[in-house]
Simulated scan of single mutants.
Amino acid sequence: MEYIDYYKVLGVSKNASEKDIKKAYRKMARKYHPDVNPNDATAEKKFKEANEANEVLGDPEKRKKYDKYGKDWEHAEAFEQARQSRQHSRPSGGQQYSGDFGGHDFSDFFESMFGGAGGGGFSQGGQVKFRGQDFNAELRLSLRDAYQTQKQTLTVNGKNIRITIPAGIENGQTIKIKGHGGPGRNGGPKGDLYITFSIENNTPFKRDGSNLYKNIDLDIYTAVLGGEITVDTFDGKAKLKVKPETQNGTTVKLKGKGFPFYKKEGQFGDLLITYTLKTPTNLSAREKELFKELAAIKK
């Protein structure tokens, strides 16, 4: 298995914080998502690498193992078990092994020590336990589906798996369903199922994390004189007071009217409304005359 530097994949340093890793992953997921880059094999590869990197570096325990064992981090516990077993059974004076493998030569060391057994420990009969293969799947949801917690049934290798999808799931996000991958060998554990979500947005809202954005037209009369308007939110309507002399491109915030935070029930981001001033058309002769009078006054 080729060594992949997950830090390099996400473009972060080895001492990057969890927040930095999450931010870098979101940026890459948006950039290389298959919906944005259809039929682009290079983008698809980068998207998968970003998901893989986030799955490892985004989990403190996995990250710790990865920092020590590199590409063989999944076999860290098996290695420690096997090494201890080897040390207990080794005659005195035998060669001792210790140290940090830095993510590069662990596989070679494991193979030289146990004859190529890169699996997951030993059974009672002395056979090597092999962990089952991980499965990967993609699940498509609409943005409105992602707004609420969903329960869905997936069929994987002929088996139905009932899963709960928390509200606020993000486009490109991957979750792990433990023990629903391929079967292990010689009593080894099952692999896991990794589900990557593709969120299709067919709404007038733009999503960024838990915030929503929307542009709305504002007539020139309300912009100049002020007033009250009704706008559509993601799940209803809201009234907004427009200040007199509102400028084109003005943005106002509706607190708590955005998208739900992932796995934080009852917490929502904000909705940011940007005004686009709409110039009146098909003016009557009288309306044109009034605008001319107004223009003369302003000179």
Rank of each mutant, 00 (worst) to 15 (best):
Q87P: 05
S98L: 07
M113A: 10
M113W: 06
E80P: 13
P60Y: 02
K64E: 09
G116H: 05
S112R: 15
R90L: 10
K64A: 10
K46M: 09
G118T: 14
K64H: 06
R83W: 12
K71F: 09
E49F: 03
G99T: 03
G115P: 02
F106S: 09
R90Q: 14
D72A: 09
Q81G: 04
F101I: 09
E80Y: 11
S89L: 08
A76D: 08
H104Y: 11
A117C: 08
F114G: 00
H75R: 15
E77F: 13
D105I: 10
E80T: 15
S107D: 13
A50S: 14
H75E: 13
G103V: 03
F106V: 11
S92Q: 10
G58W: 04
Q95Y: 06
R63V: 02
G70P: 02
G102M: 06
D72Q: 11
V56W: 01
A50N: 01
S112L: 12
G94Y: 02
Q84C: 07
S98Q: 15
N51R: 13
K48L: 06
K62D: 08
E52F: 06
K65M: 10
K65P: 00
R86M: 13
A53I: 02
H88S: 12
K62Q: 12
A78R: 02
G70C: 01
F110W: 13
K48E: 09
A76V: 10
G103Y: 05
Q87V: 15
G116E: 05
Q96C: 07
A76T: 15
V56M: 00
R86Y: 15
A53Q: 03
R86E: 13
D100E: 08
Q96D: 13
N54S: 04
N51G: 13
Y69E: 05
A117T: 03
F109K: 11
L57P: 00
F79Y: 06
H88Y: 09
N54W: 11
F110Y: 05
Q84D: 14
S107T: 12
S85M: 12
G94H: 07
H75C: 10
Y97H: 11
N51F: 01
A76I: 10
Q81S: 12
G103C: 07
W73S: 01
G115T: 04
S107M: 09
F106M: 10
S92G: 09
F47H: 04
F109G: 01
P60T: 07
P60D: 14
H75M: 14
D105M: 10
M113C: 08
H75V: 11
F106P: 00
E49R: 03
D108M: 07
Q84P: 06
G115F: 02
H88N: 13
E74Y: 15
G118N: 15
S89N: 07
R90F: 10
F79L: 09
F101H: 06
D67N: 14
D67Q: 11
D105P: 01
E49V: 02
D72V: 01
A117D: 13
E111T: 13
K46F: 03
A78H: 02
Y97Q: 02
G70K: 00
G102W: 03
K46G: 01
G103H: 03
